[in-house]
């Protein structure tokens, strides 16, 4: 069975509380034939910079990948951090975004979806 870290969106807590987010993450993990073994959320002050996440994935973790609520968690200064996505995948982790129902199992998936990621970033800028 695969194991994942879930990254909750603390800033979204007003609409989707943390227990609700937990259910979504667990449900998504089970669809991937896996389970959540650890759950984190960025401190709101640092969430944009994703300091904790960056520190985490660069250390050698015994997990298959990370589950996020949405790509929105990867937006920094109105831009999607596409390079960060690529880097995480290059390290061999999977990345999953529930809202977009978007799963990257490997860098090959990234190459297939890179145009969608660029468009997502550009559309977000104009909002």
């Amino acid at each position: 069975m695969k194991s994942y870290h879930a990254w909750l969106d603390i800033g979204a807590g007003k609409v989707i509380t943390q227990p609700m987010q937990r259910v979504l993450c667990q449900n998504f993990a089970s669809k991937l034939n896996g389970k959540i073994i650890f759950e984190l959320g960025e401190d709101v002050e640092f969430s944009k910079a994703k300091i904790q996440f960056k520190k985490m994935y660069t250390t050698d973790l015994k997990v298959d990948g990370f589950i996020f609520l949405g790509l929105e968690q990867f937006i920094n200064q109105k831009k999607l951090e596409i390079n960060l996505i690529k880097d995480v995948l290059k390290k061999g982790y999977e990345l999953h975004y529930i809202r977009q129902n978007l799963s990257f199992f490997s860098i090959t998936d990234f190459k297939k979806s890179v145009n969608d990621l660029i468009l997502f970033s550009d559309l977000n800028k104009s909002n």
Binding site: R99, Q100, N101, S113, N115, D116, L119, F120, L123
Partner: peptide, 17 residues
Amino acid sequence: NTFSPYGTKGFPDYFAV
């Protein structure tokens, strides 16, 4: 249109190019 404003159904969750 790809670049017109989206409703609650966004890109790429609901729409694809």
